[in-house]
């Protein structure tokens, strides 16, 4: 299958290992990945901070770039897919552009978060990965409650050779990131992060994984500040790892 990749702005600029792993994983499974080079950002930060007018050109750009790129679109990010699926058409309609809204809805219907693509579209849970580490999984809010990915990421992780999965207490509670929330309400965000970190540490996992680089940046940023010795790794990186090692 020919699959267009949304690298996400954060993934492209700050966490390239996640989109890279997505490419290597899908290619290993026999699919062709294309990267439309004109892509920038889905506009999630602007939408969720209330700048819907500023988000409109970003939505238009995203729809223009991806509409003809491939039949199926994937992003290694629950929140970016959530924005595409649940907010792009709303932003377009609010801006009075019904044609764009319809194009956004069409694209949204073909855009998947990584675990959705693997389990629902490609019908695979055992991706042949090998990752000999103790791992706990944080289900990010948007993948859980906007996309309803359910246990798909866990089904993928359970098939990974060598991996020990430990259950995260209060897993479904937000880590406190929330985009600009972490800056605008930094103290409340920190209080939420403290509880999330305590739960992660209680699992004695070496690695905390999730399907969203932004939440991992937040949790990982806190764990690093505490010198906790626990690292954060995107789900795609785990699934891309083989007995040959982690993806380059």
């Amino acid at each position: 299958m020919r699959i267009a990749l949304v690298a996400t702005c954060l993934g492209d600029a700050m966490f390239p290992q996640a989109p890279r792993a997505t490419v290597l994983l899908l290619e290993r499974l026999g699919h062709e990945v294309v990267f439309p080079a004109d892509q920038t950002c889905c506009g999630q930060m602007h939408v969720n901070t209330g700048y819907l007018d500023l988000a409109l050109p970003l939505v238009r750009h995203h729809v223009d770039v991806f509409s003809g790129a491939a039949d199926v679109v994937v992003a290694p990010s629950g929140s970016c897919v959530g924005c595409v699926r649940h907010q792009h058409a709303m932003v377009a309609r609010r801006g009075g552009d019904e044609k764009l809204a319809q194009a956004a809805e069409d694209l949204a219907g073909r855009t998947y978060e990584l675990s959705e693509l693997l389990v629902d579209v490609l019908g695979v849970t055992d991706v042949g990965a090998y990752y000999p580490h103790r791992v706990t999984y944080h289900p990010t809010c948007h993948s859980l409650r906007m996309l309803r990915v359910g246990d798909k990421p866990l089904r993928l992780l359970r098939e990974v050779r060598g991996l020990t999965l430990t259950e995260l207490p209060d897993a479904e509670v937000c880590c406190g990131f929330g985009g600009t929330f972490a800056v605008k309400n930094a103290e409340t965000s920190t209080a939420m992060l403290a509880d999330k970190m305590a739960n992660v540490l209680s699992t004695h996992a070496e690695v905390c994984t999730a399907g969203d680089t932004s939440c991992l940046m937040h949790i990982g940023g806190g764990l690093s500040r505490l010198r906790s010795g626990v690292r954060t790794v995107h789900l795609a990186e785990i699934l891309a790892s083989t007995t040959e090692g982690a993806p380059a």
């Binding site: 690298a7 993934g11 492209d12 600029a13 700050m14 966490f15 390239p16 290992q17 989109p19 890279r20 990267f35 080079a37 972490a182 930094a186 920190t190 992060l193 940046m217 937040h218 990982g220 940023g221 806190g222 690093s224 500040r225």
Partner: peptide, 14 residues
């Protein structure tokens, strides 16, 4: 105040 950030990568995804 409560979080680090990783250094930007030497090579972006693109």
């Amino acid at each position: 105040g409560a979080r680090d950030m990783p250094e930007p990568p030497a090579e972006t995804f693109r």
